[in-house]
Design a protein around this nucleic acid. Structure first.
Length: 516
RNA sequence: GUUUCCGUAGCUCAGCUGGUAGAGCAAUACACUUUUAAUGUAUGGGUCUCGGGUUCGAAUCCCGACGGGAACACCA
């Protein structure tokens, strides 16, 4: 192993020894009491400067006795004074370390030996001192005491910046995603994006809780992977000696809870789908699903647009966002259009009264890749995704889907052959999928059986029959509105990120062959 | 899964029609008591992803593998 070390790694191990020889524990056990953050100090000094214009700042009330900790991001040793920038949980702040402050007595070795000789970029240190502003106007901490809290043995990318221009940016996607810990340290925007994701989820959770939602957990390991059309991951339970699947959706379990008497349940569901990966797809991803008894899909549109309006406002202070090239406004109400009208608008074909064969011919005439295994629902879905989807930039509810493509959805109250379903499109992408839930157990059984016929016809994504779910419905389920919202996709919009990998801490990648 | 591009120092990148590897930062040493991508001087650092092939000679050309990006397909 040691022969693989590069010069920098060797140098750092030497310094590690040096610290130990100097009687300094490079990985001390006791906690380091922190009483301020970098951001807080910078803000306090700004405020002080604003209140005392023209005055030279020597100390700031409340920040004369600071104790902070962080990672060393730059060292600028200038003889008997050294400037170090550390990064704490909030931001970077400069430390001013002079030989006289740190070594008031005769022994100058702490400065000459340790500060100048044994510290590296990446090391964690704790310091105590006072806030002040340097000659050149940078808020700093005059260090009176410092302690090594954690030695770094591996060099980090050094990203520099001047006047907003970034030098030697750490940009390689492979390195950034595999070593997200490094990405987070050197690219502050990355951490910011993930903090926004957390804020987004919290806003949604608060909204649902305020409206009576109950957060629940349902099984990830399922005997029958139901609730969506997708290929599952398969696993095996040893003690039961049985095949289990990682869930592709939690829908059927949340509906069982509605049967059980909960009127409003929700879950942020990590789902797993054994399909291709892309900038919009990760094998595991998060969907928020919620189900509300005695409501219908019309109510759900109203509720959803209010929720998203609130999320946008909480995150940006306005409903208007810039996403890529587009300006998107989450101001409720959102536009609503039926899927047939959408297809008519963008293809000129009115498929609402056509037979399966006629729709097949329309698809062919538009040069879509379709085949005879596809049922009517699937064909319409193809038509919509190929010709219409990309046109819906502003939030739009697409409503009233054909029954063939919606096996878990209640039949439309007035339009034969359709169901009470909507998908929410934003920025040309599907963000949510909702229905008036099918609660007629006999109809549900018939729909499942139709899925079996599709499967026999060659559709490898048709749904399995879940007999326990049918049993639950037979006990009676109230009319219910339900929705699934892609949290990663929503986060991409809300944080203006072009790929799903940028909103997942650890996107799936081929395993790395690391042996040492 | 298909198409296409990429893989050179810790990081970001040069390296032409083949002649045995370079810069900046980082590292090492010295100088400097308010620096701002600090500066100055000096030094070290590479199985050019891996394996074959062509050639007197391959980072460079060809084939294959591995890893990654982008587009398409499937889905959310």
């Amino acid at each position: 192993m040691s022969e693989h070390l590069n010069d920098q790694e060797i140098a750092r191990r030497e310094k590690l020894k040096g610290l130990i020889e100097a009687g300094i524990d490079p990985y001390p056990a006791p906690m380091w009491e922190v009483n301020a953050t970098a951001k807080e100090i910078l803000d306090a000094v700004e405020k002080h400067k604003a209140a005392h214009p023209g005055e030279e700042v020597h100390e700031v009330e409340g920040y004369k006795d600071i104790s902070i900790a962080g990672r060393i991001m730059s060292i600028n040793a200038k003889g008997k004074v050294t400037f170090i920038k550390i990064l704490d949980n909030t931001t970077r702040i400069q430390l001013f370390i002079s030989i006289d402050n740190i070594c008031p007595g005769e022994d100058k070795s702490l400065y000459n030996n340790v500060i100048k000789g044994l510290l590296d970029l990446g090391d964690f240190i704790g310091v105590k001192g006072e806030a002040f502003v340097t000659k050149t106007g940078e808020t700093s901490i005059r260090v009176k005491e410092f302690k090594v809290l954690g030695k770094a043995l591996r060099p980090m990318p050094v990203v520099k910046e001047k006047d907003g221009e970034v030098f030697d940016a750490f940009t390689d996607p492979e390195l950034r995603w595999r070593q997200r810990y490094v990405d987070l340290v050197v690219n502050p925007d990355v951490k910011e994006t993930f903090l926004k994701r957390t804020q987004m989820v919290k806003t949604i959770r608060d909204f649902l809780n305020e409206h009576g939602g109950v957060e629940v957990d349902t099984p990830v390991l399922q005997g029958i992977p139901g609730g969506a059309a997708a290929r599952p991951f398969i696993t095996h339970h040893n003690a039961l000696d049985t095949q289990l699947y990682l869930r592709i959706a939690n829908e059927l379990y949340l509906k069982r809870l509605i049967v059980g008497g909960f009127d409003f349940v929700y879950e942020f569901s990590r789902n797993f789908r054994n399909e291709g990966m892309s900038r919009k797809h990760n094998p595991e991803f998060t969907i928020l699903e919620f189900y509300v008894a005695y409501k219908d899909y019309i109510w759900m549109m109203d509720f959803t647009e209010r929720m998203l309006e609130k999320v946008a406002t909480a995150m940006h202070g306005t409903t208007e966002l810039t996403v890529g090239e587009n300006k998107i406004n989450f101001k409720a109400p959102f536009k609503r259009i039926t899927i047939y009208d959408a297809i008519k608008e963008y293809t000129g074909h009115d498929v609402s009264t056509m037979t399966e064969e006629q729709i097949y011919d329309v698809c062919k005439s538009l040069r879509l890749e379709v085949d005879k295994t596809m049922g009517k629902g699937k064909l319409i879905d193809e038509l919509f995704s190929a010709k219409c989807e990309k046109n819906f930039i502003q939030p739009t509810f697409i409503t009233d889907y054909p029954v063939e493509m919606s096996p878990l959805t209640k039949k439309h109250r007035s339009k034969p052959g359709l169901v009470e379903r909507f998908e929410l499109m934003v920025n040309g992408q599907e963000i949510g999928n909702a229905y008036s839930e099918l609660n007629d157990p006999l109809d549900q059984r018939a729909r499942f059986e139709e899925q079996v016929r599709l499967m026999e016809r060659g559709d490898d994504e048709a749904m399995f029959i879940d007999y326990d779910f049918l049993r639950a419905l037979e006990y009676g389920m109230p009319p219910t509105a339900g929705i699934g919202i892609g949290i990663d996709r929503l986060c991409m919009l809300m944080t203006n990120q072009p790929t799903i990998q940028e909103v997942l801490f650890f996107p799936q990648m081929r395993p790395e062959n690391l042996t040492s």
